[in-house]
Design a protein around this nucleic acid. Structure first.
Length: 154
DNA sequence: GCCAACGTTGGC
DNA sequence: GCCAACGTTGGC
């Protein structure tokens, strides 16, 4: 089993939206970066856990734990002409983009802020990808050590 | 295959 | 709104 961190803008889709979704489950679609795509397609497994991270908002931080309930499958939004994530270059035969389905496991209240995480940037979280300068990947792996340490912060 | 221009991300 | 960092595009 692996651990991940998945970014989302709460103004677009946040933990409240996930909780309100049917069975608190949603398709994690719209990822349009090859590195992230490869992880969704090749590495995500049912039962993996991920932090839901709120980005581009007032208090960026980890707002909850989510579980992968369906591993990588072709992202339907890439083929949906009406979707904002539609990609005319993708096609059904050789899908370019992938999604996974995730379910809310539990909220982290209050969220563990980026500020708090940064307090450990020289210590337990010194290798955490999220905290790396210039990191823009919306899906990143988290080590078991980092995972447990961060959960211990609440 | 190089690399400049451009677009996007995301914290501040 | 600014801007650093980085990915992508496209001309050559």
């Amino acid at each position: 089993m692996k651990y991940w961190l998945m970014k989302s803008e709460p103004d677009v889709f946040g933990i409240d939206d996930l909780e309100a979704a049917p069975r608190s489950t949603t398709a994690w679609d719209g990822v349009r970066n090859y590195q992230a795509r490869n992880m969704l397609r090749d590495e995500f497994q049912r039962g993996d856990l991920a932090f839901l991270y709120h980005s581009s908002c007032k208090e960026p931080g980890i707002a909850g734990v989510i579980e992968v309930v369906r591993p990588g499958y072709p992202d339907p939004s890439a083929l949906d002409r009406k979707s904002p994530y539609f990609d005319p270059q993708s096609d059904k035969q050789s899908p370019r983009w992938y999604s996974v389905d995730v379910k809310l496991d539990r909220r982290i209240d209050p969220p563990i802020t980026l500020k708090e995480l940064r307090e450990h940037q020289r210590g337990a979280l010194k290798d955490m990808l999220l905290l790396r300068r210039g990191n823009r990947l919306s899906v990143t792996p988290v080590t078991a050590k980092e995972w447990n340490f961060i959960l211990g912060m609440r």
